[in-house]
């Protein structure tokens, strides 16, 4: 892993990152409470602990770049500006949800903001992102496709076939995709050590002629540096690039993962010492850019947005019967 020297960053930019991370964590913590209260059904996978990864990559990308991810998919559209009320309503199974309540937590989409989902089968969206990147170049644009997935996805067949194709198409400059591995060390309850013959996941891309690097996924400055390089490179060359962000999820795999027999409490505690939000907060505070008062204000603003989202979701109606048979085909 390359050690990144602390770069000089505009404090206004760093403050925005801080607000973004507070916003998505506050949102996720609310979804966990709503799940426990029975307001959110099905499965719920939250992003808590991994915030620096998505925040830095979205900061480094352009608003017209597109994204695909797995089912830990709430913060990606939120940071692109999707209405938090519509995302929360989707989780609540309401017709005002971004997907009219037909997708739920695992299938958030906001195509108008370049967010193409939201997929529930591990690794299954990787080939879609590769094809989408091809389409972006075919249409003579310089847009880039960001494809997020976890460490577990790299052991699925759906990883290897499209990654080889991306490397191959990259030789012709027709595949501007950035693969972002949100390596939180566990595929559900199976650790990377117990599931991958090679634990340096980035190095696996060597075999597919795709430039790659690892980065400390808890240090948003480091992630942002690598993300900027990767996205600029993909945009300039039309070739894929892979970044493995070493991160950690503080919550269970899903909302039903109560006892977490696969990891020690001390391990979770030690990672919490490297909470990406607290690390950034500490630095901003040390540099004199953040006071206790400002922190409280930022948290209060996030709380208000999330409260509003919950109110909207609570007040919204469930999908009516006629929605059952719509959106199956274009004409029905």
């Amino acid at each position: 892993m390359k050690q990144v020297e602390k770069p000089q960053i505009d404090p206004q930019v760093a403050l925005r990152w801080y607000k973004d991370m507070i916003y998505i964590r506050t949102f996720e913590e609310q979804t966990e409470r709503s799940f426990r209260r029975g307001k959110i059904g099905g499965y719920l996978h939250v992003y808590t602990g991994q915030e620096a990864v998505v925040t830095a990559f979205l900061e480094a990308s352009r608003p017209d770049d597109i994204m695909f991810t797995g089912y830990r998919d709430h913060p990606h559209p939120l940071l692109r500006g999707s209405d938090p009320g519509a995302i929360m309503a989707e989780l609540y199974g309401k017709v005002t949800g971004v997907c009219k309540g037909k997708g739920g937590s695992m299938h958030i989409f906001d195509v108008s903001r370049g967010f193409y989902g939201g997929y529930g089968v591990i690794g299954g969206h990787i080939p879609l992102a590769v094809g989408a990147a091809y389409a972006l170049r075919y249409q003579n644009t310089d847009r880039v496709c960001l494809c997020f997935f976890g460490d577990g996805a790299m052991n699925s067949g759906a990883f290897h076939e499209p990654i080889n194709m991306a490397g191959l198409w990259g030789h012709d400059g027709t595949c501007p995709v950035v693969f972002i591995i949100e390596n939180n060390l566990y595929a559900m309850g199976t650790s990377v050590k117990r599931s991958s013959a090679v634990t340096n996941l980035a190095s696996r891309f060597d075999q597919y002629a795709i430039p790659n690097e690892q980065v400390d996924g808890m240090d948003i400055f480091a992630v942002h540096g690598v993300a900027s390089r990767a996205i600029d490179e993909a945009r300039r060359t039309g070739r894929p690039y892979a970044v493995e962000a070493l991160t950690y999820r503080f919550s269970g795999h899903g909302a039903a993962d109560l006892f977490q027999p696969y990891r020690e409490k001390t391990e979770v505690e030690s990672w919490r010492q490297r909470d990406p939000i607290r690390m950034l907060e500490g630095r901003l505070r040390a540099d004199g850019h953040l006071t206790d008062g400002a922190i409280a204000e930022i948290q209060a603003a996030a709380d208000r947005m999330v409260e509003e989202a919950v109110k909207f979701a609570e007040a919204s109606p469930e999908p009516p019967a006629e929605e059952l048979y719509t959106d199956i085909y274009a004409d029905a």
């Binding site: 080939p127 989408a132 091809y134 389409a135």
Partner: peptide, 25 residues
């Protein structure tokens, strides 16, 4: 670019086709 020979990767190229179609091809 319009007649694309693929590796023997049905999952890969059919999945890629889905992504292309979502983007307007």
């Amino acid at each position: 670019r319009r007649v694309v020979d693929t590796p023997i990767s049905e999952l890969g190229f059919i999945g890629a086709g889905i992504g292309m179609a979502m983007l307007g091809l």
